[in-house]
């Protein structure tokens, strides 16, 4: 399956580079970690992080979240997390009118919150994005579009920039953190990492050690949707969620 366009395209690129030697060692050098010692030191630091440093990361996270207009809520346990979500749902109105509906990831942390029961008291149905062999994608799309609140988790949260990072396996579709007007993300305190170097070190480690590569999609989210396209004036809620609530469970 040699595509002649691809062949001639790459030939032109190689010739522009002066036809360098492309043997096995040149190829592996092109993708090798340029600073392996630094990466190893980073992994060690993360594994051995003492509790007081973890606490400091949460302080750093809340400092980064504030100017980004992220509503950060720290709670002691799952019950308190559910209460926090119920408060958000009770105190907000659907942006586009109609009934209050929510959508939530099929994810161990989120499923443990039993949101369907908790929000039933408020009369708010919760659509869970559970993968199934015969799933109707059109139905999923309508349900997510009809939801005014989308509840997700994340794999990591970067303290320095208050960035949520998550790969999007089948039960965790990207639209839940995008289409509803309000995005609620729930994570545990242990998922907070210091900075982007740490985040990428973790992603790399998982690829190398566990063979768990990236799937078709991965998303980083830093704050609610925003724009400054009219006279450089900052406005929240351009196309994505107008509000981002980040719930961090301790213990």
């Amino acid at each position: 399956m040699t595509d002649p366009r691809r062949t001639s395209f790459l030939k032109r690129v190689r010739s522009a580079l002066g036809n360098p030697l492309r043997d096995e060692s040149a190829i592996s050098a092109a993708f090798a970690d340029p600073r392996p010692a630094a990466t190893a030191a980073l992994a060690k630091r993360m594994r051995e992080r003492p509790p007081e440093e973890r606490a400091a990361l949460l302080v750093r996270l809340s400092e980064a979240a504030e100017p980004l207009n992220i509503q950060l809520v720290q709670v002691p346990d799952e019950t308190a997390a559910v209460e926090a979500i119920a408060r958000i749902v009770a105190n907000s109105l659907p942006e586009w009118g109609g009934e209050k509906r929510a959508a939530a990831w099929d994810h161990p942390l989120i499923s443990a919150l039993n949101l369907q029961d908790a929000l039933a008291d408020l009369g708010v149905p919760v659509f869970v994005t559970r993968p199934a062999p015969d799933v109707d994608r059109g139905r999923v799309r309508r349900a997510v579009a009809d939801a005014f609140v989308g509840v997700t988790s994340a794999e990591w949260c970067v303290a320095a920039t208050a960035t949520l990072a998550a790969r999007n396996p089948p039960g965790a579709p990207r639209s839940v953190s995008l289409v509803p007007s309000i995005h609620v993300a729930v994570i545990r305190a242990e998922q907070v990492v210091a900075d982007f170097q740490e985040l990428y070190a973790l992603l790399n480690a998982e690829m190398d050690e566990e063979g768990r590569g990236l799937t078709d999609a991965m998303t980083f989210i830093t704050g609610p949707s925003k724009t400054a396209d009219i006279e450089a004036t900052l406005v929240h809620g351009a196309h994505g969620p107008r509000e981002l609530h980040l719930i961090v469970i301790h213990g």
């Binding site: 993968p131 799309r141 078709d216 999609a217």
Partner: peptide, 20 residues
């Protein structure tokens, strides 16, 4: 410090994916 959204896209939605 960081853009609001960064998306990595590596192909069409997988066979079990619910969107994309």
């Amino acid at each position: 410090q960081m853009a609001g959204y960064v998306s990595y896209i590596g192909g069409p939605a997988g066979p079990d994916s619910l969107d994309g």
